[in-house]
Simulated assay, not measured.
Amino acid sequence: MSVRRLRAVLRALHLVPAVALVLYVYTPLADVESFRTVVQIVSVPLLGLTGLALWQAPRILARRRRRAAEPR
């Protein structure tokens, strides 16, 4: 997978839970117990992980390239 494709996938994975979080905050869906549970257990951690991955992607990929280039 190319770096551009990886970034596009991470961005999409970041935007979907962001929309769910916006719906949770600004609509009456916060009163629905199942939606609240999904937002709290799935969306918020996924936002954190994808945000970190987008932020640190250059460092992670550079480290992977260095490790792959090292002789074993």
Rank of each mutant, 00 (worst) to 15 (best):
A30S: 12
A30I: 03
L52K: 00
L49T: 06
L6E: 10
G51N: 12
R7P: 02
R66C: 06
V22E: 03
Q56C: 06
E33W: 15
T27I: 08
A18F: 08
A53V: 00
V16K: 00
P28V: 04
D31Q: 08
H14C: 10
L46H: 01
V42C: 09
L61E: 09
S43L: 00
R4G: 09
V42H: 06
H14A: 09
M1T: 07
V39R: 00
G51D: 06
D31S: 13
L54Y: 05
F35K: 07
R72V: 11
M1A: 11
R5M: 12
L23T: 04
L15F: 11
L21Q: 02
L52P: 01
P17T: 04
H14S: 07
L13P: 00
L15P: 00
R67W: 09
I60E: 07
D31F: 06
S2Q: 11
V3C: 05
R63E: 14
T37R: 15
V44K: 02
A62F: 03
A12M: 12
A69D: 11
G51T: 04
F35I: 06
L61P: 02
L6W: 01
A12L: 15
L23C: 14
L52C: 07
L29P: 01
V19L: 15
A18Y: 00
W55S: 05
R67V: 08
D31M: 06
R11V: 09
S43F: 01
A68M: 08
A53H: 01
R11K: 09
R63N: 11
A8Q: 12
R7K: 15
D31E: 14
P28G: 13
A20F: 12
L6C: 06
L61A: 12
R64W: 13
E70K: 13
Q56H: 08
L52F: 13
V22D: 01
S2V: 04
R4S: 13
S34H: 07
L10P: 01
E70S: 12
A20K: 01
R65A: 15
A20P: 00
A57M: 15
L29E: 02
L54V: 05
E33N: 11
L15W: 14
L49D: 00
R65I: 06
T37E: 14
L6N: 07
E70R: 15
V44C: 02
F35D: 04
P45A: 05
R64L: 15
P17L: 05
I41H: 07
V38I: 11
L15G: 07
A53W: 02
F35T: 06
V19M: 11
G48D: 05
T37S: 13
V44M: 05
V9H: 04
Y24V: 02
V16L: 15
A12R: 11
E33R: 14
G48N: 03
P45C: 04
A68L: 13
R7N: 08
P71S: 10
P58E: 10
V32R: 12
V39D: 03
E33A: 13
V19W: 05
L21H: 02
A18K: 00
R72A: 13
V44L: 14
R59P: 03
P71G: 12
R72Q: 11
R36N: 11
R72G: 12
S34L: 09
L52R: 08
T50I: 03
V16I: 12
V42G: 03
P17E: 07
R64N: 10
P58Y: 06
T50D: 02
V9R: 08
G51P: 02
L13M: 14
